[in-house]
């Protein structure tokens, strides 16, 4: 059970989403993200979990014809980030994202991490140096990268690249960080590193993670949402979802009878 006093960082209210062409991908999804907690989204392929995640940084705005209905409200300022008047760039300045496949820029390690700050007009070398170091430390990459900051990011291993992408997302001090299946392209050791990192990151920020891997959801998350066909089927603290789910569908999915 979720304690009613847990502070909420953001919540979707009756969120509907339509892809260009009319595919109704999210159906009245209402759920909170609790502050400094990790919320995991699980469900079979095509259930809308990535679509839901990408609403939080308005990624869908990059492609024409996509339509949101409903609200995603951020606290404490009560901004509805889906509102017409709210610039998606403003939203992305507050909520950063780590993608499924590591996608570093073909630039140096340093420039990859610094890019979010450069976009914000930060050009002070000292300031950038400090922030880059802080972000790389936060992403547990500093020891491996400190002597090769000017190396191309592509020369890092896959797991290191993903941690670099986390550092890039971290450097701008986001309030919420989105992880879209962050370990699906990584080996088990790199996966364990990323999971450990996520648990540390939640001291500072709120995390929403999409995962295909149910053990991962059970290991890292505090709350878990099970989605199916664009609907939120069940949302509860992770322990409850994995031990005593209240819906039969959730139990079937978690026990592997389905999905």
């Amino acid at each position: 059970m979720i304690k009613p006093t847990t502070p909420i960082k953001a919540e979707s209210r009756n969120l509907n989403f339509f892809y260009n062409g009319g595919n109704h991908a999210l159906k009245s999804v209402s759920m909170p993200l609790y502050e400094n907690k990790i919320t995991a989204l699980i469900g079979p392929s095509g259930c809308g979990k990535s679509t839901f995640l990408r609403c939080f940084n308005r990624m869908h705005d990059l492609y024409p014809g996509n339509k949101y209905q409903g609200e995603i409200v951020m606290h404490p300022d009560n901004t509805n980030i889906l509102e017409q008047g709210v610039d998606p760039i403003e939203v992305r300045m507050r909520i950063s994202m780590v993608f499924q496949k590591p996608n570093p820029f073909p630039k140096s390690i340093y420039e990859n991490v610094a890019y979010g700050l450069r976009v914000r007009g930060e050009n002070n070398k000292r300031m950038l140096d400090d922030k880059v170091e802080e972000a790389l430390k936060g992403a547990a990459l500093w020891n491996e990268a400190k002597d090769r900051l000017q190396d191309l990011a592509f020369n890092l291993s896959g797991g290191q690249q993903q941690r670099l992408c986390i550092a890039r997302a971290l450097a701008t001090d986001p309030e919420i960080m989105l992880f879209d299946e962050p370990t699906s392209a990584l080996d088990p050791i790199a996966t364990a590193n990323i999971e450990e990192l996520m648990s540390e990151l939640k001291q500072k920020l709120t995390i929403l993670v999409v995962t295909h891997n149910m053990q991962q959801a059970a290991r890292v998350s505090d709350y878990t949402a099970y989605m199916y066909l664009g609907e939120l089927m069940e949302y509860d603290d992770t322990n409850t979802i994995f031990t005593r789910p209240s819906r039969k569908e959730t139990e079937d999915y978690i026990t592997g009878k389905f999905g």
């Binding site: 760039i89 996608n103 890019y115 976009v119």
Partner: peptide, 15 residues
């Protein structure tokens, strides 16, 4: 240029 690279840049708040 892969879409992933563009999305990465947009995701940190680039115009």
């Amino acid at each position: 240029i892969p879409i992933a690279i563009r999305e990465a840049a947009y995701a940190v708040g680039a115009t």
